[in-house]
């Protein structure tokens, strides 16, 4: 997990200082620009790390033969699942906060308080994103018959949510000519924790919102961070609930 934290630090610093190289400028530009760049990095990396971390949680114990002993303890299956989840979530949250937090310390001298708050919002939402995908991973781990299948399912989830989902949505929009579901489209983004994360970070930044030209498309309700935060929490709770239901059987 230390390695993960180091990777985050290096990437974040590199993006903050060299992200503008295409435009011919080297050096720290603005927090908005840095966050927008980091978001596109994090949206690939964190779900992948979370899935890799979590797919093994239950099925791995089952396959190694250590699950029976845990189940014989005077704890409920929900407690066991939650304990597994919280342990992994703590590790993931630690490396995320350590990795990006170090950058915040480096940048803190050059930032105003408002920009720092934005950055902390980004860190918090990164942790939530990780926890949502970790929850999905633990669910996979409960359903899968063996580790190989669990890893396959985890990779499939990553492909679906990170690569395919937006394409499908876009495709559907194009095919229908924007006639149907045009208004529902922004809400469909809530069905993907990675998109919730993206919207959460991009919409918290006034400049970026206009920059991307998205402001007109989106209903104002989706620009409410607390609402998006709630959706993210639902994405953490729901897979865990399904996993618990299945694990009890």
């Amino acid at each position: 997990m230390l390695a993960v934290a180091v990777v985050f630090t290096v990437f974040a610093l590199a993006i903050a200082y060299f992200g503008g190289a295409q435009q011919g400028a080297v050096g720290f530009r603005s927090i908005e620009f840095t966050i927008a760049s980091l978001v596109s990095l994090v949206i690939y990396l964190i779900p992948l790390i979370a899935l890799v971390l979590g797919f093994d949680a239950i099925v791995g114990e089952r396959e190694r033969g250590s699950l029976d002993l845990l189940l014989s303890m005077p704890i409920t299956r929900f407690e066991l699942l939650l304990g597994k989840y919280l342990g992994l979530a703590a590790a993931l949250a630690f490396s995320t906060i350590a990795g990006f937090g170090l950058v915040a310390v480096v940048l803190s001298t050059q930032l105003e308080i408002n920009a720092l708050l934005h950055y902390f919002g980004f860190m918090l939402s990164s942790v939530l994103l990780g926890m949502a995908f970790l929850s999905l991973a633990v669910m996979v781990s409960v359903f899968a018959a063996d580790r190989t299948r669990a890893s396959g399912m985890a990779i499939a989830l990553w492909f679906f949510f990170v690569l395919v989902f937006d394409l499908l949505l876009l495709g559907a929009l194009v095919v229908t000519g924007g006639q149907y579901g045009g208004e529902a489209f922004p809400y469909l983004l809530l069905a993907n924790p990675a998109d919730v994360f993206r919207v959460l970070n991009i919409f918290s930044l006034e400049d970026v919102r206009t920059l991307y030209g998205l402001a007109t498309v989106f209903p104002p309700a989706l620009a409410e961070p607390w609402l998006l935060g709630l959706v993210m929490l639902a994405w953490i709770a729901a897979p865990l609930a399904v996993a618990t239901w299945r694990f009890r059987k």
Binding site: R64, G65, S66, D68, L69, S72, P74
Partner: peptide, 12 residues
């Protein structure tokens, strides 16, 4: 369960 001790066949 609190009153039970269990040693599985292959302890991992």
């Amino acid at each position: 369960r609190r009153r039970i001790g269990y040693l599985p066949e292959s302890v991992v």
